[in-house]
Design a protein around this nucleic acid. Structure first.
Lengths: 203, 203
DNA sequence: ACCTCTTTCTACCATGTGGTAGACAACGAC
DNA sequence: GTCGTTGTCTACCACATGGTAGAAAGAGGT
């Protein structure tokens, strides 16, 4: 049977999982092919080289996450803390279901500057919009005054870090059950919101 | 000239840098040997295999970081927010000077469960002490009430993430100058402290 | 002088890797 | 039916990698 029609998509999916969990360099084409259930050459038919496969994987991941975040922002009420909460919640779901998604994003810092550059450019407009929004809300006194760009980076670091390092959670004895995950999400959001709350009382 | 006496240390240092920046799998023994300026076989003389080299590298990194944190805690005044600030500051310095240090810690989630397990056990007592301390201070009302273990993990995720992902900082247009780093440290600390402050005002 | 131990090296090997060349089968156009 | 196109495969290659075997060379004890 030829033309299953979704071979390319299956390759991308398996690649996200493997690149994101074990890392790009540690993943061989044979391994991906094994997961997908095709020969290695089929990968090289759809993607001329491992590097171009990586490019495609990065692009798709960025698009997926962007769509998730976009939808969350749209659905949230027009209040900054509520929006932040909505975004964190929205990212948390796929992050838990497929830890490799954010793991792949984190992998970017290990890749060549060329790959990083491409992803940076792709994400740029979203970052820009987020920082502009945060700046306005800070000016309006609805968020703690800080550098808006850095706040984006810090929230990103917190969420991505907690979602991609199960070892850190295990080290502090966090239960990996369903209720454990719900509480994790709750505490993560409270942590982030507390960090953004305007004018905390002087200790 | 034999017995330079510090070949082993030089190998460990170069390995931390390369494993931490490019990743374990992406780093070859030849590459490390090239940096150190010896033949590959010299590495295999001091460390019987790449895996055992990794073990040694992880152990030394953990010891270094533990010493830094230990000293910071000892020197800080007995007030929880001051102590947290001291620890973040103390970790920030080596993190900036040698980004690979924290990068290596983050690499743990990509490694075999055996390696992760060993590091987890090594870090366990420190984590335990930190969570106990935080719990006491929460009970005393000097910190926002939350799960102490998770707070440790969240602060770790924030600091490690921001320190190991220069791409994220570049994406938000953060300047990588000396003054940029000073402001980064300031804002990072304010972010974490705000997240830990007791009883934020209800929005 | 000789032996032993330590440290480093050269030479080599088995294996896994990314990638090339090209055969083979299904399919639609005509 | 024939032909070009598309998708997948088998066979193979050049190369880098982790690791083995063992020689060389200095240092120190006797």
């Amino acid at each position: 049977m030829t033309r299953r029609g979704n071979t390319r998509a299956a390759i991308l999916e398996a690649s996200v999982d493997l690149f994101g969990s074990r890392g790009f360099a540690a993943t061989s084409l044979d391994e991906i092919a094994g997961v997908v259930g095709v020969a290695k050459q089929t990968l090289l038919y759809w993607f001329p080289s491992k590097d171009e496969l990586l490019d495609a994987v990065l692009e798709q991941t960025a698009l997926e996450l962007a769509a998730v975040i976009e939808a969350a922002v749209r659905a949230a009420p027009d209040e900054p803390l509520a929006r932040v909460e909505a975004v964190v919640k929205a990212v948390f779901r796929p992050a838990v279901r497929r830890p490799a998604l954010l793991g792949l994003v984190r992998e970017v810092s290990r890749l060549s500057p060329a790959h990083a550059e491409r992803l940076t450019l792709q994400v740029q407009p979203f970052v820009r919009r987020a920082t502009d929004y945060l700046r306005d809300e800070m000016d309006a006194g609805r968020l703690r005054r800080a550098d808006p760009g850095l706040v984006v980076a810090l929230v990103y670091a917190t969420v991505t870090g907690i979602a991609t390092e199960p070892e850190a959670l295990r080290a502090v004895g966090w239960p990996v059950s369903a209720t454990g995950l719900r509480r994790l999400r709750r505490e993560l959001i409270e942590f982030v919101l507390a960090a953004l709350h305007p004018a905390p009382p002087d200790g």
